[in-house]
Amino acid sequence: MRNEGQLRDDTVPGAIAGAESTSEDYVTMGIGGQTFGIPVLNVRDVLGPQNITRVPLAPEEIAGSLNLRGRIVTAVNMRKRLGLPSENFVATAMAVVVEHEDEPFSLLVDEVGEVLSLQSARREAVPATLDARWRDVTQGIYRLDDRLLIVLGVADVLRTIRTDSI
């Protein structure tokens, strides 16, 4: 294990990571009590609860479609995607809009938190013991002061839905 104390000092919320050019900013979000992060440059928009139209026969992780200023955005129920209970979740969820292969998607999550600047060098590998559903979408893990942050691979989230459904 590397120097843990040092790592914690670096991860000040919102801090610009000094002279290190290898830091990256993450938008944090909570799904079922776990903190996830997406590189801030991938995030197009953050929306409150939306009016979502269910799409019949769609894969179960797809909550439906929503209208974002005239664009049709496909909403992904992240709780379902991670195998967490999701009763009455969609109506209250926050939506993080990302772009993938020129198509907008919105990830439905419990809450959206602050932006953290994290040292890329501190990113740790995905533990092999993680549940497959989670491992598929995890790109790495950061240890914060009080919790762990999972770096969510947006492309992985969407790609695995596609292969499931076909």
Binding site: V55, S65, E103, I161
Partner: peptide
């Protein structure tokens, strides 16, 4: 508007609209 790639395999829909 085209159906999202992720749902294009559903034969019953030809598109989406607002």
């Amino acid at each position: 508007k085209p159906v999202s790639r992720i749902m294009r395999h559903i034969p019953c829909f030809s598109g989406t609209t607002i």
